[in-house]
Structure formats: structure tokens, C-alpha cells
Amino acid sequence: MQKRTKKGKWDHIKAFGFFIPVLLVFTIFVFTPFFKTLYLSFFEWNLISPKKTFVGLSNYIALFQDPVTVKVLSNTFVYILIMLVVNFIVPYIMSYMMAIMLKKGQNFYKGAIFLPYVISLVVGSILYLWILNPVSGPIGLIARTFGIRLPIWSKTDGLVLLILSLITSWKLFGYNFIVLFAAVNNIPKEIIEVAKLDGISNWHIFKDIVTPMSSATGIYVLIITIVQGLQQGFTPIKVVTQGGPNYGSASLTYQSYHEAFTLYHIGKSSALSVLTMVLFMVLLALEFYFVERNVYYEN
């Protein structure tokens, strides 16, 4: 259509044109609120009072001095770490087992493993609250026939983090598994057959051939697992523990919600949100720098 000489200019316009829908939505519903949040993080305000008090950096200073911030930060990393193991490493390995090693039943397993993903985490949380009730749930009752009193996990530091991240993982496992499976399954079988004939162990095939060749999808799952650990983990915290015991299960997202909507400390909550974003931006930049350039794209 267009003349070759004008092509460069056209492309530029088109390139931006294609971004208009996304930018439109984002400007109104993400960027503007974010800048507003940034602005509010320098104020003390309760959302409805006509009086906003400028407090400079004191919201940030308060956060840095508050031991709760440290606790919440380390909780968040524990959540993410557990979810990286359960929702990234395990399904990666299992997708290899299924794509390369397993001979029969693939379709059944795929279908069944994916199912929990369609369920809401609110439902999941209520269900697990019953199933895992250490006194009255099925597991608690079984344990008791052996004379064991299970710890009350929802009130036990550490354990509460593990169980809550398992609840979130339960839902998300299937999706990550299917996506990773598709990537692993797309690797030309001949390459793997050859490697097998050469007597290379499954572990080495996985590590040296499969992971590099599926790394584009791998990165995707890695990043969404981190995002999910940060964002989706909110639901079970809200339904089951409300951040307790004594902030033992609060994550950054939950804490930001708690400050804003339980205590109406809009300024402090805003500051925490800004910090959260900055922190993860740094992580993302590191990922860009160290990982992205080593990713294998098939061209």
C-alpha cells in the first residue's frame, strides 16, 4: 500500500497507533491512580476528610522504622519463594516427566490437573479452612486417632505462611503446569531422542536441553508466579487470617490494603505501595539484565 520511502514514518505512526488502546486504559486506570498515590504518600489523610496534611517523607520514615514492615517484607519473600518452588520448579519438572517420560494417560492428567484453576480463591480458602481445621477437619481427626494434636496452623508463625501459600498454589498449579507442558512438548522430539541414545540422563536432558529451549515460556511462568505470589496471595490472607497472628501472615499487598481500608491511613498505605512497586521494579530490571538476554527464542 504505502510507498517504500514512506515506510519508516508509517511504521512509527502504526507502532504508536497499536499502543493507543492499551495506553488509553492504562492512563486512566493505572498511571493516573499511581501518580495520585505517589502524591498522597506525602500526606496524612483518611480518604474523606477535607483536610490533607502534608507530612513530607514522614510516611516513608515511619515505614522504615516500623518493625512490621520488615516482617511483612520477609513474609512476602517467603510466599514468593514457596510459590516458586511449588508453582514453578515442581510443575516444570513434572511437565518434563509428562512430555518426555510418560507414555500413557497424558490427556487425563492434563485435564484433571488443570481443573482447580477455574475455581475462585475465596471458595478455595473456605474449603481449606474446613479441610485443614486442625481440630475438626478430616486431617486433624485422622491425626488424633494416632494421638497427635496438630498445631493450630492459622495461629502459628511460619506454618501459617506455608499453608496459605499452598492454598494459593493449589489453584494456580494447573495453569502453570499446562503452559509449561505446552512449551516442553513443543521441543522437537528428535533432539531428545538423540540425547537419550547418547546415554544422557533425564536430569541432564532437562537441565541442559529442555530448560534452555523452553526458556521463553519459562520466563513467563517465572514472572507470573512472582506476580501471583504478590497479588493473588491476598485472597487467602483476607479470608483466613486477616494478616494474623500479629502480622505473621501479612504480605505487602495485604498490608497496603489493611493500612488503607482498615485503618484509613491513606498516606502510609500509599507509601507502602510505592515502595512495593519500586522494589519489584528493581527485581524486574535485574531479571531483564541477567536473564532476558540469555533467553532462547526460536529464531
Partner: peptide, 11 residues
Amino acid sequence: LSTMFIPFTVT
């Protein structure tokens, strides 16, 4: 990409 990490309370 960084906007993925904004807690939803912000918006």
C-alpha cells in the same frame, strides 16, 4: 511491566 507489581489497593 512494572505496573504488575502495584498492589491493587492503589487503583
